[in-house]
Amino acid sequence: MPSVSGEFIAFFILAVMAIGGAVFMINFTRVMHMALALVFTFLSIAGIFILLDAEYLAMVQILINVGAVSVLMVFGIMLTRHKQEEKPKARPLHTILSLLGVAALFAVMWRIFYTTPFGGDPADPATVQSLGESIFKQHVIPLELTAVLLLVALVGAIILAKREESK
C-alpha cells in the first residue's frame, strides 16, 4: 500500500471523479447528459495530468477535449435528431459478450501491470520550456505533419458535411 500523502489523496479523488464520470456516461439515458458526464471525466483527467507534472498538457486537455471536442459533440447531438432517450433494445447476447470481453481485457491488463516490474525513479518535473524545446527542435517535422493533418481533417470535414447539400 502506498503511504497516504497529499498526492495520493489527490489521485484518489481525481480517479474516482474520472471513473464516476465515465460510468455515468455509460449509464445515463439522455444523450446530452452523457456528453456532460464525459466533460466531467475529461476535467478529472486534466487534474491527473497536473499530478503528473504536465501542467501544459492539462491546459491543452481542458482547451481541446473539454472545450472544443465536447462542444463539437454537443453540436453533433443537436444537429442530429434523437429519440432523446436511448431506448434499450434487446441485444442480450451481444451485451453479455461485450461485458465479458471487456472484463477479460481488463483482467489481462491488470495482471500484466502487476507482474511487470516498472522500475525507475520519477524524472525531474518537465518544464514548459523543456517541452517546447523538445517539440520545436526534436519533433518539429511531426509537428508540421500534425498541422497538415489538422488542415486536411478540417477540409475533409467540411466537404463531407457539405456534399449532400449540393445535390
Partner: peptide
C-alpha cells in the same frame, strides 16, 4: 466485439 475477443485470445495465448 469479435476483434476484441480475438485480441484477448491472442494476448492470453502469447502471455
Amino acid at each position: 466485439l469479435v476483434s476484441l475477443i480475438g485480441l484477448i485470445l491472442l494476448v492470453v495465448s502469447f502471455t
